[in-house]
């Protein structure tokens, strides 16, 4: 039972990070119909900026508490990532808004390659370790371990998701975003500045990605220039699993994928009688995805789009 609980906790932690990143994918997809392949790299840049800021601030003899150092670092990561995403949209995606569907996908792939390699030039090829700002304490929970960092990750992700749902559902901006997602040209006829809304979507998505980058590197204590790609891929999978374009779907899909992966990794060996080890964790995740999509072709929360003829 304690193994199950342990995998459940690990899954929740992983899942909340996936959910934060998946939100960025799903918001952009909902409005532009674009798979923003470079979104994972934004997560990586967020993690890298935080790491650099922390070591920079710690190296000065300033009377800053570790909480303040972390806060300043995270805020700078958010600013850097949002700016990056803002310009990325402007340069690589906006000119292609009326181009064939796959053209912006290719520029997104180009962006991803570009960012990854620029990051490698700046931060090097080595794994960077997350500095020990706080001491990690471990709590016992009915036979399973949970650390203060993990508790922090889960709580912060939940808070951010609630805030985002409120923003989307209750504010004027949120309404404009939903209208744009529904139909950009009609939204613009109704006086919504579609360009601003799209920029804003990228900026919000990037801010979430920056936070996710911090959380994931704090959880595993490392960051690497190539960490964004796989993470982004998983998050995109989560977004599709939940029903792409749907915010609640991205959250559910993220948590679910995290749980599937970690529980799958824990039990796959038992299920297959030792034939498949934990190496097959990803196989398990993708198989679940395929099965879900076969039965619900538009994801768990996706709307059934009836074809009018």
């Amino acid at each position: 039972m304690d193994i199950f609980l342990q995998q459940l906790i690990n899954g929740l932690v992983l899942g909340s990070v996936y959910a934060l990143v998946a939100l960025g994918y799903t918001m952009v997809y909902g409005i532009l119909g674009l798979i923003n392949f470079a979104h994972g790299e934004v997560v990586m840049v967020g993690a890298m900026v935080v790491l650099s800021m922390i070591s920079l601030l710690s190296s000065f003899p300033l009377p800053l508490g570790s909480e303040l150092i972390l806060l300043i670092s995270v805020v700078s990561a958010i600013i850097v990532c949002s700016t990056l995403a803002f310009f990325m949209e402007k340069v690589a995606y906006r000119p292609l808004r009326n181009a064939p569907r796959l053209a912006p996908l290719i520029t997104a792939i180009g962006m991803s390659i570009l960012l990854q390699n620029i990051a490698m030039m700046i931060w090097g090829r080595q794994y960077k370790t997350f500095p020990d700002l706080f001491s990690i304490t471990s709590y016992d929970l009915a036979g399973a371990n949970i650390t203060n960092v993990q508790i922090f990750i889960i709580c912060l992700s939940i808070l951010i998701m609630i805030a985002l749902l409120l923003l989307i559902n209750l504010t004027r901006i949120g309404r404009a975003m939903r209208a744009t997602a529904e139909n950009p040209s009609i939204a613009s006829l109704m006086g919504v500045n579609v360009n601003t809304i799209i920029s804003l979507t990228f900026v919000i998505g990037a801010a979430l990605a920056a936070v996710a980058g911090v959380l994931v590197s704090a959880n595993y204590s490392v960051a690497h220039y190539s960490m964004g790609f796989i993470l982004g891929l998983k998050a995109f999978t989560a977004a599709v699993l939940g029903g792409i374009g749907n915010m609640a779907g991205a959250m559910i899909g993220g948590i679910l994928l995290g749980l599937i992966e970690s529980i799958g990794a824990g039990y796959i060996s038992d299920i297959t009688g030792g034939f498949m080890g934990s190496h097959y964790q990803d196989v398990f995740a993708f198989l679940v995805l395929i099965v879900v999509l076969v039965f619900r072709p538009t994801g768990i929360m996706g709307e059934r789009i009836a074809d009018r003829s």
Binding site: V91, A92, P95, L96, A99, A103, P104, I106, T107, I109, G110, M111, S112, I113, L114, L115, Q116, N117, I118, M121
Partner: peptide, 13 residues
């Protein structure tokens, strides 16, 4: 790789 990524973006634009 940076130049390669740039080439992809520029050609598509």
């Amino acid at each position: 790789m940076v130049l390669f990524g740039l080439a992809l973006i520029v050609v598509m634009l």
